Each structure stands twice: as structure tokens, then as C-alpha cells.
Computed example of a mutant assay.
Amino acid sequence: MSVNVIVTGAGSGIGRATATAFAQQGARVLIADLNAEAAKAVADSLDGAVAVVGDLSDPEVAERVARTAAEEFGGLDVLVNNAGVMDTMALAGDVTDAEWERVIRINLTAPFLVTRAALPYLLERGKGAIVNVASEAGLRGSAAGAAYTASKHGLVGLTRSLAVSYRDRGIRTNAVAPGGVATGIMTGLSFDERGLAVLGPFHASVGRVAAPEEIAAAIVFLASDAASNVNGVILPVDGGWSAI
């Protein structure tokens, strides 16, 4: 796979598994992450990978990520918007301004900014793929709190808008919607008791928790030529949770 790829949030979890999967197929990968140590460790473990560290919700950082990939690799073929944070499961009436702003900024504004920065380079190639990591919470209202749910529904909408807007210029945009995945996204969170009491019963049908590599495999497929006629799709990778 001789392609140039950006993976955001690639220092751990789904992002790290995705960057590794692309690299194993011969892709050159830019590792974008807020955690400098994690980003460097992943980049050092992959042949030809480079790391860019910073807050992706900062337009200057988003521009630097896209520009670095184009300069280091000679162009850009694939963007994977994976970086994200979980909320505390707080309901709309209980969400603080700080939590709402943080979750929307990281989960929705950052993917928009990175996409906007990357589009000129993707369009220059005349062919490319964007894959967004949404969530089961982007398909239903019972998988997370108000902030996370709104952010992932927003990312689904952005995915579909991009798919329609750029399909005639060679850019496909799809998203995966994972269910439960064994990552560290919930590490250190203190969950809202009222939110857990209301939403907890809906989680009984979550099913098996997936490995990050299972989500990565779906992302690599959507970015590949094997999915050349797949555009605007929100693909559940949730063990059947969305079918219930």
C-alpha cells in the first residue's frame, strides 16, 4: 500500500492500531497526538512514520499536521480522524459548560479543522479517502451522555456532508461507529451518577468488547481501493449492537 496517511489520536487505542495496520501494508503514516511521549513511541515503532504533537482543535496545529504530511511524504492520500474523548455520561440538564465545550471541541471541531486543512492536499491528488471514527453514540441517544452523543451525531453529519460535497472530485468520506472497545478513553473519568442510572440499563445489549485492531481493520478497508464505491457510509463495528 503505497499511500500517505494521517491518523489523529494515534498515540494509543484505535489510533495506534490503525496507524500500525496501515504501516504493515507499506503506508507512510503521520502520527498526530496530544501526548508527545506516546506519539513519538508509535512513530519510532513504524518504518517511515513521523509524529506531530499538539491540540488538534487549534487551527494552527491542524494546519501543521496536514502540511507536515504533505511535505514529509510528498502528498496525502488518506485522513483518519480518530482523536476523541468520552464524557461523564451527564444528561443535558447536568452537563457543565466546561464539559460540553471540551467534548465538542475535541470530538467535532478538531476533525473539522484537520479535514479542512487536509482537503487541499487530498484534492491535489484527485483521489483520496477520509475515515472518521464516530461511535454507536452517533447512531442512538442511549450510548453516552449528552455532550458525547451530540459530538458523534455531529461527526456523522460532517461525514455525510463531506461525502456529498467532494464525491465528484475524487474524495470519499465514510465513518466507522464502534461500540465497546478496549481502549483507555474512560481512564480517569468520574461518571455522573444520574446519567449512569438513566443510561445504564440501555447498555445491557452492548455485547463483546472489541479489540482496537478490529476497528482498525474496518478503517483500513474503508480507506482502500476495495471500498472504491463506498461513500457516505456510517459503518457500525459494534458486534451487532446497532441491530438490536
Results as ranks from 00 to 15, higher is better:
A129S: 15
K152A: 06
V198T: 13
V220A: 12
V3I: 15
V50T: 14
A41V: 02
G93S: 12
G239L: 12
R140P: 00
A144P: 05
L123S: 13
G138N: 02
L139W: 06
A150V: 12
Y148A: 08
A227M: 08
T115S: 14
T115V: 10
V65F: 02
A227Y: 00
G128S: 03
D58Y: 10
S57D: 14
V85A: 08
P236M: 06
H203G: 04
P201W: 06
T96A: 07
M86E: 11
L158V: 10
S57K: 07
S165C: 06
L139D: 05
V61N: 04
G157C: 09
A243Y: 02
N82A: 07
A32Y: 10
V42I: 10
T68R: 09
K40T: 15
G13F: 04
S12D: 11
G240Q: 10
G74W: 01
A211P: 00
E72Y: 02
W241K: 14
L119W: 02
R140W: 00
V181N: 11
V7G: 03
P59M: 08
A36W: 04
A62R: 07
G180S: 14
F191V: 15
A223F: 03
G54H: 13
W241Q: 05
P59F: 05
P201K: 09
V42G: 05
S161E: 05
T68A: 15
V5T: 04
S165I: 01
F221T: 00
F112L: 14
A41G: 12
T183D: 07
G13Q: 12
I31N: 06
A118Q: 05
R105S: 15
I104W: 02
I106P: 04
M86R: 01
T149G: 13
K152C: 13
V198D: 01
T109A: 04
A19M: 12
I14N: 05
I106G: 09
S151H: 14
V103C: 06
